[in-house]
Design a protein around this nucleic acid. Structure first.
Length: 209
DNA sequence: TACCAGGAGAAAA
DNA sequence: TTTTCTCATGGT
């Protein structure tokens, strides 16, 4: 089993790296198509400017916010998305208001926000709201494609439901699994420059799984 | 210097 | 409906 191999290689990851649940959601938007190291720089700059809450972010001009999150890349796009999310977050009653929704309703609500796609919504659902939703990202696709479990033509929802059906609704497992996949990608990237060539090589923790 | 990285939405075909 | 383009910084 891939999970067992990853867990044996890296141990528990205790994700997501953030000081608050709101910060998890901000990080989920900032990390869109971006390396986490750049997101950390952006979060640090943003923390240096305002407290990390929805009201404070909305009180900034979009230009101020964009400048603060510049290291995360796509800063103009992400500043607008972040403020759009903050508006919807407050309208819904913040964390407590959103937490009252069942998982399907919460996912629909998040996906209806401009700038929140399936992966970002599922990051939030799993790591901020502790809902049993499997996050499918580029690392997941790449790893399972290399292992021969995916062809590469599957859609996001198809992969997500396949994982959820196979694993059952287990928040702790989903949390660790996704974190381990990300950790693995970073680990092999350190060893080899090209991730897509790593998962079948001798140093790979899941080779042959 | 060139290429790549944890996505999403709009425009074009 | 599907494919292509755009957004951008930082590391190697």
């Amino acid at each position: 089993m891939v999970y067992a191999a990853l867990f044996a290689a890296y141990g528990p990851r205790h994700w997501w790296p953030a000081d608050s649940l709101f910060e998890v959601m901000v990080g989920a938007i900032l990390t869109q198509n971006t390396a986490w190291s750049n997101v950390e720089r952006a979060l640090q700059r943003l923390r240096g400017l305002v407290s990390l809450d929805a009201e404070a972010i909305l009180n900034l001009s979009t230009e101020q916010l964009a400048d603060a999150i510049r290291p995360a890349g796509y800063f103009n796009v992400k500043a607008a998305r972040l403020q759009e999310f903050c508006r919807s977050y407050l309208i819904a009653g913040g964390l407590n208001g959103l937490a009252r929704l069942d998982t399907a309703a919460l996912r629909r609500y998040l996906l209806a926000i401009k700038g929140i796609g399936p992966e970002t919504a599922d990051d939030m659902l799993l790591y901020a709201f502790e809902r049993p939703v499997f996050v499918v990202d580029a690392y997941t696709r790449r790893l399972f494609q290399r292992l021969g479990h995916l062809s590469g033509n599957e859609g996001y929802e198809q992969i997500r439901s396949a994982f959820e059906s196979a694993l059952g609704a287990d928040v702790v497992l989903f949390n660790e699994y996704h974190a381990l996949i990300v950790n693995h990608a970073k680990a092999v990237c350190k060893t080899k420059p090209r991730c897509d060539q790593c998962c079948l090589s001798e140093h790979c923790a899941v080779s042959g799984q």
